[in-house]
């Protein structure tokens, strides 16, 4: 609660990476790994069959990797990159998900976003809103001002959780 306690916390410990945010980042990392592996095999084995779908798979994989890294890294730039990539993912899953339902001929093979990410337990659809909520409640700390209330309370929660 006190400002003194908050400001004495080491600046190197980013608010985004403590508490339940770690779980979010872990799920992002798994999704990035899954999307990368899948697009790798698709492109190596049969790129000619569905160039559009496989290019999208690769693009999605790259964006998931960038989003994961941006979530882990502290700082304002990473914060912005995380926002951009997460909004991109959300747009992708909505647009490609809708297209795969109304124009299945465009996507002869599945991408991570086909049918709103059904092949990935709808995680691609659920994760971006969670990521946006997380980013919105954990803005980067500025040097002069006190840390955001959300970040401070989360750090406290993480600290108390770590002792139990």
């Amino acid at each position: 609660m006190s400002d003194a306690r908050s400001t004495t916390e080491p600046a190197a410990k980013p608010g985004r990476m403590s508490g339940i945010g770690r779980v979010l980042v872990a799920v992002y990392a798994v999704l990035a790994l899954a999307a990368t592996g899948r697009s790798f095999t698709q492109i190596v084995q049969r790129f000619d069959e569905a160039p559009l779908a496989y290019t999208l798979s690769a693009l999605a994989a790259v964006v998931y990797v960038i989003a994961t890294i941006a979530l882990v890294r502290p700082g304002r730039t990473s914060y912005r990159v995380a926002w951009v990539t997460i909004v991109f993912e959300f747009t992708g899953v909505i647009v490609v998900g809708t297209l795969s339902v109304i124009r299945p001929d465009l996507f002869p093979d599945a991408t991570v976003w086909s049918f709103f990410g059904m092949g990935y337990l709808f995680i691609p659809l659920v994760l971006p809103p969670l990521g946006m909520w997380w980013l919105a409640t954990h803005p980067p700390r500025t040097d002069a001002a006190a840390p955001a209330p959300g970040a401070a309370s989360d750090a406290r929660r993480a600290a108390s959780g770590g002792r139990s």
């Binding site: 403590s18 508490g19 339940i20 945010g21 770690r22 779980v23 872990a26 799920v27 798994v30 993480a158 959780g161 770590g162 139990s164």
Partner: peptide, 11 residues
């Protein structure tokens, strides 16, 4: 932290 345990479960 407790969330690290959840991360292990997710893995």
């Amino acid at each position: 932290s407790r969330w690290a345990t959840v991360v292990c479960g997710v893995a």
